[in-house]
Every structure is written in C-alpha cells, then in structure tokens.
Amino acid sequence: MNIFRLAGDMTHLISVLVLLLKIYATKSCSGISLKTQELYAIVFVTRYLDLFTDFISLYNTVMKLVFIGSSLAIVWCMRYHRVVRRSYDRELDTFRYWILLGVSFILALVLHEKFTLQEVFWAFSIYLEAVAILPQLVLLQRSGNVDNLAGQYVFFLGAYRAFYILNWIYRYLTEQRFTRWISCVSGLVQTALYADFFYYYFISWKNNAKLQLPA
C-alpha cells in the first residue's frame, strides 16, 4: 500500500459517500445517471468475486464490502425508493449501455491475464469501469448546468483514478515485476474520459460560475 493508492481509495470512498449523502439528504437523484450506478454495481460485483476466497487484508475486505454495498444501495434507492425514484431523469438517462457491457465483455474474452472465470470477469470489470461514467457524463451534458453534488461526485470519481495512475507509476518504479498493464492502460483511458469534464469544472470553479457544459 502506498500513499497514492490510499488517497485514491479514500477519494473513491468520498465520491460514493457524497452520492449517498445527496440522495439520502435531498431524497432526490436528479442529475444522477442510474445507468452509471448500475454499471458500477456490476463493476464491483464482477471484480470482487474473490471476496470470500482470497483474504488480502482487513482493509481490502472491508472496502470491497463497502463498495459493493453502497453501489447496490444507490441502485436500489434510485429504482425502488418511492420518493427518490420520482426525481430520476428517466427521459434524459437514455445511454445504450448494453454496448458498453458487450464491448467490455468481448475485450475481456480477448485480453486477460489468465483464461479463468475469475480473471476474465476481473478484466471485464476493469474495462467496464473505464467507460461506466459515460452515461453520467452524457446526462450532465443534457441537463446543462450541473448541480454541485453531481459535479462533485464526478470530480472525486475522476480524481480517484488519477491517484491510481500515480500509484501504478510508483509501483512500476519500486517493484521488480509490474503486471498491471490491463489496469494501467484502462485507468488511463478512464481518466482521459474525465479530462474534458475536469476542464469545464475548473473553468466554472475559477469563474465561480455554475458549471455549464457545452450541449
């Protein structure tokens, strides 16, 4: 464990807690893409298949349970909570995410570390995570200005993966064997997808204006 990875995990945790706070406190999920939340739930479930078979550390196990639990709780809330579900932008959240699921799965069948069920699903979850934010970014574009909690959610989510890139650089420099090419390349693609959002987020923060994404 290094400081970059810890910072990344904490930022990731904050992004999830910000989202849970927004939904719980305001009893509203306007501006949040249910499709992105469902993709993240799939990412965590398929990535942590080793939850009960490989014990790495208490921290690792606890964080896996928190990520799986919170992502499923958010999806449940947005789908079934009688108050929250009314504020879901159903007609704006129309990204055809089956494409993302299909492409990620096919890529995982081709590119993986070992051809075992667990490894193929692990690679699938890595590729899927890289593109899972797309429905949310499209929803932010369509709903124009971003209410600040949704914007913060995306900001922390992008920052977490940027910290992980620093973590991979650090591990590449300090460990003799580096076997994280799948995560590393996918993480770079993921962070690049956030780059334009970060640009507009920074501009709006600098001008102290509401975040206006170009339509």
């Binding site: 990875r5 995990d9 490989d54 550390s57 690792n60 990520f67 570390e113 692990w122 992980y164 973590n167």
Partner: peptide, 10 residues
C-alpha cells in the same frame, strides 16, 4: 507486507 496476489488493489 504485500501479498503476491495479482489483484491486491481495489
């Protein structure tokens, strides 16, 4: 104490 696990990251 890093496990030799390939996937010790979240």
């Amino acid at each position: 104490r890093e496990q030799p696990q390939d996937h010790d990251e979240l």
